[in-house]
Amino acid sequence: MQFGIFTVGDVTPDPTTGRAPTEHERIMAMVTIALKAEEVGLDVFATGEHHNPPFVPSSPTTMLGWIAARTERLLLSTATTLITTNDPVKIAEDFAMLQHLAGGRVDVMMGRGNTGPVYPWFGQDIRQGIPLAIENYALLHKLWREDVVDWEGRFRTPLQGFTSTPRPLDGVPPFVWHGSIRSPEIAEQAAYYGDGFFANNIFWPKEHFQRLISLYRERYAHYGHGSAEQAYVGLGGQVFMRRNSQDAVREFRPYFDNAPVYGHGPSLEEFTEQTPLTVGSPQEVIEKTLTFRESFGDYQRQLFLMDHAGLPLKTVLEQLDLLGEEVIPVLREEFAKGRPAGVPGGPTHADRVAAAERAAGDDDRAASAAFGARA
């Protein structure tokens, strides 16, 4: 199982001081956080994609390429790549290039984002969000798997004899997660292709996400990719820790109350009761995170949001120390207990290359057997 962090890259004033970081400070803080994630033993760093203030990560592959050059083991991902407003050709090229530079330590999470105005900024119609997601990904999937592509669809100019360059590393495209918080069509899309489904369950009660994940698992099996239990599921989460629970609640409350995404709404206590948000001791984070398997089954990736709402960089780095030293080792051990042998681990490039080689060998043996039978 893979553990990591994701960032939305918000530039938010610290409610305790009133000071907001500059865009440069925030960008460099995100890099520092990624390097710290590798240092403390996390598996994944993921960044969102936004094109509007107060967010800064408008070019995820640029940032991830810089981080790739300064890390050795960390898996680099997006927390959202806007499949609706980015050209699939450019996504294919950018992530294949990043894959080569990072030695395969790359995957990508497709999403539609949460900012309506981004659609006209990039020449698209928000009312076509789902059809855009479906058609654009169909093209991207094809571009990564066929050397020469002919294509005609509703939303972009046709392609004739087109080759996306560079080709995916080792002939194996980056693993794709389809992220959604509300759309069964996206769960269906992930299942159809045998890709991963990431339920960023940080805002709503678990019952909503149980329905989406169950649909994805059922349809994954329906399309013949494996059993429902073998489907690739990722989950979001939010934590803030101090060794003493009361200290954690007291320190985090002003950040929660003024956060741009959920401030001035439900109370901190209501939110922690109804969502995965955990504010307390490392042990409380462990206990609540372990309940996710009870709700959603065995899964492959757990990402935590830890650097939002104006939290100072120093505080975030302290959080990562606690996460890496006291929380993740216990979670790894506990999640491994009772995990069925047939449930896959988190996807890696090496594992996927090996699987492709096995599949090619099986095809060769089947072809030889068929030829021998005819002879």
Rank of each mutant, 00 (worst) to 15 (best):
F271L: 06
V233D: 07
L323C: 08
K314D: 14
L303S: 03
G265W: 02
G310P: 02
S245D: 12
R339V: 08
P344H: 05
D257F: 07
G280W: 02
G310E: 05
A341W: 07
R243P: 02
V343A: 06
G297R: 02
F271A: 11
T272S: 14
F296Y: 15
L311I: 11
E334M: 11
T278C: 11
L303I: 09
M241Q: 07
Q302P: 01
I286N: 03
D321V: 07
Y262W: 15
L290V: 09
V316M: 03
P266R: 14
G234F: 05
L317W: 00
G237M: 01
L323R: 09
Q246S: 14
L320R: 02
P254T: 10
S295F: 09
T278R: 06
G265E: 08
D321K: 12
F304Q: 12
G342T: 11
E318Q: 13
E270C: 03
H308T: 04
P266K: 09
T289E: 10
F252S: 04
D257C: 07
D247F: 02
L268S: 09
V239Y: 13
G234C: 05
V343I: 13
L268Q: 02
L320K: 02
S267K: 09
L311W: 07
L305H: 06
V233R: 02
R339M: 05
I328T: 14
L331R: 08
A309P: 01
Q283F: 01
F240K: 06
G280Q: 08
E326D: 14
E269C: 05
E294F: 02
E333V: 02
F292P: 00
V327K: 02
V233I: 15
L323K: 06
I286T: 00
K314A: 13
V285Y: 06
V279F: 06
L277S: 04
R250F: 11
T278G: 00
A248T: 05
